[in-house]
Design a protein around this nucleic acid. Structure first.
Length: 432
RNA sequence: GGGGGGUUUCCCGAGCGGUCAAAGGGGUCAGACUGUAAAUCUGAUGGCUAUGCCUUCACAGGUUCGAAUCCUGUACCCCCCA
């Protein structure tokens, strides 16, 4: 246990932020303030990128690190093969070993952006439980680990109980065993790194306490646990999901612009929580934003600050500035005098369609056909309606007539034209 | 086994043999307002080579100048009596 004089009151910080859902010990604050501790959180590698749902865990680890503790980010290469039944309504599809390996590699890369994994006393550790679990024989596991798990206790866990109550899906033996793996992870990390605290979302409580019980039985050591509340929206749905899917941390899956926009559009009712949970703003600033939001919600200072902070953290200054530039263009005036490259960057998420350059000659390409080609209208009738109702735009300038023809002079850059239907539905036409 | 009811455009649901691409609501899309919000208001909502033409009212046939509407058969659903 290292002594550091730079310890900050992490529990106090988490408390005012509302990040403490349950803790195993009321004295956790004193314990953490007494010495630098090692703390771990687990992440399931179900995809090749982390998403907003993982942000909570990463931020909590980051807060611990900044408060003078050592974080371990555990990537569940082994547990990911099984699937955690907690908080899931049905049996999960199993991923292949290759998929998992690839996922773990790219996830680790993303984590490096948020935590320091240097050699300092508080330098984080990246662990993959596949490294130790894959070498465990089934018989050994049953004798050493399984022996310590009373089934009646396991059955009483909420995660298991809720699944057993459902007659339609049930719970496989495989998923039932998940808890044992995660419990052993904690014991292993305690042995190897002196890790004494596991943190996780509130749905992880059962798994966390399972690890604590196991450590007590196997090693007679006292470990601790802490959970944070799940990040949900005021309407009860999950934060970080849109109609088109999850918001990812990788710029390939969710562009910095789309990422930034997601936070800009957060509901007033959710903004305070997001600021507390997902940014490192000081209490004073968060509270002054609360006040601003109450007094003048139209200014949306909270959302702007939130989007700024989170985008900068994930995509860096460069990502933030390109997101801002794209925002200006998307909601700004006429588009023109740009290069293909600039347009490609700004409209990274926007679907595009290639057409022959010869179509621009003469007056042959009508706005109606162009909208259909670009996928902004599902039929010509639909396109015609959009134009007639004033909802069609070329390079952000409204199309006034149904007879509008497109020509080379309408190109916004060398080869690209920007079409828009409605307020923010864009599509590009590339003329090759 | 007997009797009755149903199946309509994305969804719910109204449809008198011609005036039905089919009321109304929801949803969706566009516009106004606005905070890139919510609420509200307005318009649109099968397709097209477009004052007309084509496809659509479970499916297949039939009656009729003319059918979503009538008749026959088929499939599926619901209710009642055995």
């Amino acid at each position: 246990m290292r002594k550091t004089n730079a310890l900050k009151d992490i529990i106090g910080d988490l408390t005012w932020r509302g990040l403490i859902h349950q803790k195993t010990d009321d004295k956790l604050g004193d314990w953490l303030n007494a010495a630098s501790r090692t703390v771990y959180a687990g992440f399931d590698p179900t995809a090749d990128s982390l998403h907003v749902g993982h942000l909570m865990g990463l931020m909590v680890l980051r807060r611990f690190q900044r408060a003078g503790h050592r974080p371990i980010a555990l990537v569940g290469g082994a547990t990911g093969m099984i699937g955690d039944p907690s908080g899931k309504s049905e049996e999960r599809n199993l991923l292949s070993v290759d998929e998992l390996r690839a996922n773990v590699t790219s996830i680790e890369l993303q984590m490096r952006g948020m935590l320091d994994f240097d050699a300092s006393p508080t330098g984080g550790v990246l662990a993959n439980n596949f490294d130790w679990m894959s070498r465990f024989g089934y018989l050994d596991f049953l004798r050493d680990i399984g022996k310590n798990f009373p089934v009646n206790v396991m059955l009483a866990k909420d995660s298991v109980k809720s699944r057993l109550e459902r007659t339609d899906t049930g719970l496989s033996y495989t998923e039932f065993s998940y808890m044992l793996l995660q419990a052993y992870d904690f014991v292993y990390l305690s042995d190897k790194f002196g890790c004494e605290l596991q943190v996780g979302g509130s749905d992880q409580w059962g798994n966390v306490t399972a690890g604590i019980d196991l450590a007590r039985r196997m090693r007679s050591v006292q470990l601790y646990g802490l959970t944070w509340p799940l990040l949900t929206k005021s309407d009860g749905s999950k934060m970080g999901k849109t109609e088109s899917g999850a918001i990812w941390l990788s710029p390939e899956r969710t562009s910095p612009y789309a990422f930034y926009q997601y936070w800009i559009n957060v509901d007033d009712a959710d903004a305070g929580k997001c600021l507390r949970f997902l940014t490192e703003l000081e209490r004073e600033e968060v509270e002054s934003l609360d006040a601003s939001r109450a007094a003048d919600p139209g200014k949306r200072e909270s959302q702007k600050r939130l989007a700024e902070e989170v985008t900068k953290l994930i995509h860096g200054d460069g990502g933030l500035s390109s997101a801002r530039r794209a925002t200006e263009i998307f909601f700004g005036a006429e588009i023109g005098d740009l290069s293909d490259k600039q347009l490609a960057e700004i409209f990274a998420d926007v679907p595009s369609k290639e057409l022959a350059k010869s179509q621009l000659a003469g007056e042959q390409l009508s706005i109606v056909d162009a909208l259909v080609e670009a996928g902004l209208a599902k039929s010509k009738g639909d396109a015609r309606r959009t134009v007639e109702q004033g909802g069609a735009y070329v390079n952000n300038r409204r199309v006034e007539s149904i007879d509008r023809k497109l020509a080379a002079s309408d190109l916004a850059s060398e080869t690209v034209m920007v079409l828009r239907s409605g307020k923010k539905k864009y599509a590009l036409l590339r003329f090759q």
